[in-house]
Each structure stands twice: as C-alpha cells, then as structure tokens.
Design a protein around this nucleic acid. Structure first.
Length: 537
RNA sequence: GGCGGCGUAGCUCAGUGGUAGAGCAGUGGACUCAUAAGCCAUUGGUCAUAGGUUCAAAUCCUAUCGCCGCCA
C-alpha cells in the first residue's frame, strides 16, 4: 500500500540487477570493498523482501599488466595468482553474509565469451556520426601500470602519474573506441534521467567532464599478454577496463539477448561504485552500451570512502582496518549496522572501531536487544511463553494504537530512504519505533498489570511481540543473521517475514505459539579497553 | 590556477531569512520487566573569522583562514 516503487512485484517481469564493482585482486580486500558489499547486499535483501526478483553480483577483475607483474614477482603464473587472490574476495562476501547470487571472475570462460562477443558487436556498430565505433590507430603516450591508465604529457606531475605512480612511455598500435561521437547522446541521457548518476555532486562532475569534450578511448593493448584476446586481431588484448565492464552482462547470459535472465535483468537497476571509478561507469560504459544498442544502467551510485582517525588509511600510518578482523571481533551484523547507520551513503566517513563498539552497545544491545529481551522475558514469565491472540480493535487503547500507528506511519519514509540508498535515514526511522516501544513498556508497565491481574497484560505483550516481528522484517536487510535469530525466537513463519506480508494489514505473528525463553540478541561489549594505548592486534 | 562543497554542542551531524536542534557521551531523578539495559529530566554552542544587506542572518553577499572534491 505504501511503497513508492510503482510496480507491484507480482505483475512486473523486470528483476533488479544490483552490482558491486568487480574488485581488482592485487591486494587483500579492505574496508572499502566490505562497505560496498554490505551496501549492495542491504539493498538486494530489501528488494527481495518487497517481492522483487533480485540478481546481486560481485566478483573480481583479474586481467591487466599489474596482475601479470605481481604474479611474476611471486614467481607464479598469473592464473595461480588470481585464483589465490580472488578467493579472498569470495571469502569476504561470505564473511559479511552477503547474499550474492553469483561471483564473476573475468578469467572464466563465460566471461571471455561475453567480452569477445561484446567486442565484436562494438566493432560492427556505428557511432551517431555514421563512422565505425572501433578503429585501429596508433597510441603514443605515458602509461601507468599501477593505475591501468594512459596519461598525456600535460597530465604528468614531476614525471609521474597524478596519482604518483610511475609511468612508462608506450608506443603501440591500438584500437580506439569512438567515445567522442557519443558526447551528445550521453548528455541527453543524463539530462533526461537525473537519477542515473548519484549523488548529485557526482552527477554534476560527470556532466561537466562530458561537456568539456570527450576524446576517443584506447581499448586494446599489444604489450600485454594477460588479458582477453581481441577477436580477429592477433597480438591485441583488451584494455582491462573494456573487459571488466562487460562482467555485468556476463552474468545474465550475454550475448544471448533472448535469454530469460537477460530479458529480466537488463538494464541493471544499480551499479554501486567507488567514487574513483565513476568515469568508467558513467561515461565509457553507457557509451559502449548505447553503441551496441543496449540501455545504460538505470543508476550508478558512487559511495564515499573511509578515513580512519581523521587520516587516510595507509599502511605506513598503521590505521588500516581489516574487515575480516572486525567481523571476527564484532560479528557481521554489528559491522554491517555500523557502516550503514553511522555514515551518509555517498559521503566520506571516519571509520573508528571505538564508535562501532559504542554503537553496538547503545543501539543494538541497549535499545533493540534489550527491548526484545525484556518483552520476551515478560512473555515467558507472565504468560508461559504463549503469544496472546491478536486483540479486537475495540480492545486496543490509545497507547497501543499510538505505537502501532507510528510504525506504519514511518513505513513510506522507510521505503523512500531505502530506494534512495539513504540507509542511515531508514535506520533512524526504525529507531524511532524502537524508542517508542521502550517508552511503551515503561508507560504500560506490564509488571504492574501482572500484579493486578489485569486483562491488559496479554494485549500489551502481544503488541510488543508484534512490534518486534515488525522490526525484525525492516531490519533484516541490515542484520540478516540476528534478525533471523529473532524471528526464529518469535516463531515468525518465513512466508510472513517480508515486507509484502508486513504491508498486508494482518498481524505477522500466529496466535498461540509457545516461545522458547529468549537469549540476548547483541551481548554488550566491554568498552573499558578502548581509548587506551594498544588495541590487541 | 579555475569551478564546486564543507566548517553548528566533547563526538557524529540536521537545520537555507523569523526565539539555536537531534543522536551518542556527561549529570540528576523515579522505577524494576530487562543485556546495571530502559524511562524522565538536564548540563553544554559568541553556528570558522571579519565586514556587509535586512526590521530580522547559522541561513543572503564580500573577503580571509582551514579541510575536501572535480578539472587544469
């Protein structure tokens, strides 16, 4: 009834394709990868809960000179190197309880097939000016292997790339993509769909960049062997970005445009990216897609980066945070909750482990965990754990209705926040209900009702358990593990544990279930060790 | 160097012309179902600085300082 998303899922053939970037496995996964995984997963779980069919993708981008060199340094083959490195990213997704439906590796045969097919289509296509989209040219310029990027002489700073990476003079035959011819189409597209690039500040940057004029893009290399061969062009392999972007199509059976998955999931609903790669996703990728006659993704959303303790994370400062270690210490759900609640998605944030622990205690243990514990303990103690029947509307008093109304009133704003990826706002709305529920416990004082033998007691406890079920559904995208535990404790049937059932105006919980005694959802952490010198490593 | 953003309570931030706000942290109180949690109350800010416009400025304008982003 309430969600703004216009199409009811049941009648909509379109699914939601949600992607993270495929990560470059030249180093261990870091906090930024974990952040993006979590954000994508929260959204995917949210849309599934609303009844939509979701395809959530992540993976690794395994080609390029940098990978080949790292492998050579280790004295192993590139394939052995990426096999080992890619596994860490797969582990990270699992560690974070990410519900990805697939994990794309660009070294897989299916991806080679898709990437080469994409190239062929691109090469056979024509730009708006009537010329071929791909042409053979000659490249002479500076190349930074670390950035996998070409730079012009004027872009160099002290003889190095703007990023500080060393560059080498490179002269070779190369295929170009006629990006310059797509400038007007791109501008028209982004002006027609203002939400296609978010946040707005990134959109403005992209538009400004396009307006200044685009130059054609070198899309093949000859000096590199670790890559996907360009079809019918011996000696050429695809530039790593040309290859990598196609991964989003690989997963949906490209080049088979008639396949059910392709039909269902393209165009992608959302590419989540770091702000460092928006140009690839907002200029090159849409242009290439238009070139082969495919729609650009509906939205590219650039998330922010973390700093730590007010400084950029770097190994030399020693403030690098290992996501595996954090999950080991606090659990996946606390980690997920912290990064989703503390920061405005799309803005940079200062990641501080002490704040994570603080938030775990104050919001998860004290507010939510204790609400659950006190409610279910009283149910256990006063009513032998039996869920009371849902009362007739006439028996509900002002306080009951006020709490239930607040919950349902916040729902439209919750949906809006979720669809806008304003996760912290969604959680704030949920917490209003949690706070109200704790106030409700105090004002209704079930312990007094019990002493008085009041008929109000089962009503109040049923309202509380129902609100807990409600909260568990809204919070499942953020904290799937803990909320599953809560739902098991409440004996919420799995077919009721979603946003479709929640908006049905029917109580979520079955009457009369007998619940087991509760166990604390989020045990409190001892914070006395924070603020002192040494964290244990 | 150009363009843009930001600078508000100890911390994270909301607030774009009309009496300075929220959460967390701190302090006090009443309660006791609960993870010594929760609830109620409360301390705390010359809104970066200096000018200007206005009856009225955190909000609009100018300059300066600091941080950040994009571009060159």
């Amino acid at each position: 009834m309430t969600p703004p998303p216009a199409k009811p899922a049941a009648t909509s053939p379109k699914g939601c394709l949600i992607t993270t970037p495929i990560y470059y496995p030249n180093a261990a996964p870091h906090l930024g990868h974990a952040y993006c995984d979590v954000a994508a997963d929260v959204l995917a779980r949210y849309y599934r809960s609303t009844g939509q069919t979701v395809l959530l993708l992540t993976g690794t981008d395994e080609h390029g000179q940098k990978i080949a060199r790292a492998a050579a340094d280790k004295g192993i083959s590139p394939q052995a190197h990426v096999d080992e490195q890619s596994a860490h990213f797969r582990d990270l997704a699992a560690t974070l309880t990410m519900s990805n439906d697939d994990f794309i590796r660009t070294t897989e045969p299916r991806h080679h097939h898709a990437a080469q097919a994409f190239w062929r289509e691109l090469a056979a296509s024509h730009a708006p000016d009537g010329q071929s989209n791909v042409y053979l040219g000659h490249y002479a310029g500076w190349y930074s292997a670390r950035d996998e990027t070409f730079f012009q002489e004027s872009e160099l700073v002290d003889g190095k790339a703007p990023t500080g990476a060393p560059v080498e003079w490179t002269e070779e035959a190369t295929y170009y993509f006629r990006l310059s011819a797509w400038q007007d189409r791109l501008l028209a597209y982004f002006r027609q769909y203002p939400d296609a690039i978010q946040p707005a500040s990134r959109r403005n940057e992209v538009l400004a960049f396009i307006e200044r004029g685009l130059t054609d893009l070198s899309i093949s290399r000859t000096g590199v062997s670790w890559g996907i061969p360009v079809p019918d062009a011996p000696g050429h392999v695809m530039y790593v970005w040309t290859d990598a972007l196609v991964n989003y199509l690989t997963a949906i059976d490209f080049p088979d445009r008639d396949s059910q998955r392709f039909q269902q999931f393209w165009p992608a609903k959302l590419h989540l990216v770091g702000k460092d790669i928006i140009r690839f996703h907002c200029i090159i990728w849409p242009a290439m897609l238009m070139a082969v006659g495919l729609e650009p993704p509906q939205q590219v959303f650039a998330h922010g980066f973390f700093i730590s303790g007010g400084q950029k994370m770097s190994k030399s400062i020693g403030n690098v945070v290992d996501p595996f270690e954090l999950v080991r210490r606090y659990g996946a759900d606390s980690f997920r909750f912290y990064v989703m609640s503390e920061f405005a998605f799309g803005q940079d944030g200062d990641f501080q482990e002490a704040n994570l622990a603080q938030r775990h205690n104050s919001m998860l243990a004290n507010d939510l965990g204790n609400l659950s514990q006190r409610s279910l303990s009283m149910l256990q103690r006063y009513l032998a754990g039996t869920v009371p029947s849902w009362p007739d509307a006439a028996r509900l008093e002002t306080a009951d209705n006020a709490l239930l109304t607040l919950a349902s009133q916040n729902l439209p704003a919750y949906h809006q926040a979720m669809t806008e990826l304003a996760y912290h706002r969604a959680l704030e709305l949920i917490w209003q209900v949690i706070t109200a529920a704790n106030q409700y416990v105090d004002t209704q004082a079930p312990w007094s009702l019990h002493k008085q033998g009041s008929a109000r007691l089962p009503i109040v406890l049923r309202v509380l358990t129902e609100v807990l079920a409600w909260l568990s559904v809204l919070l499942t995208p953020f904290m799937p593990g803990s909320m599953a535990a809560l739902q098991a404790n409440l004996q919420l049937p799995s077919d009721r544990a979603n946003l479709v059932a929640l908006t049905s105006h029917q109580p979520l919980l079955p009457d009369g279930a007998t619940l087991m005694p509760p166990t604390p959802l989020f045990p409190r952490l001892d914070l006395s060790t924070f603020g002192k010198d040494g964290d244990d490593a």
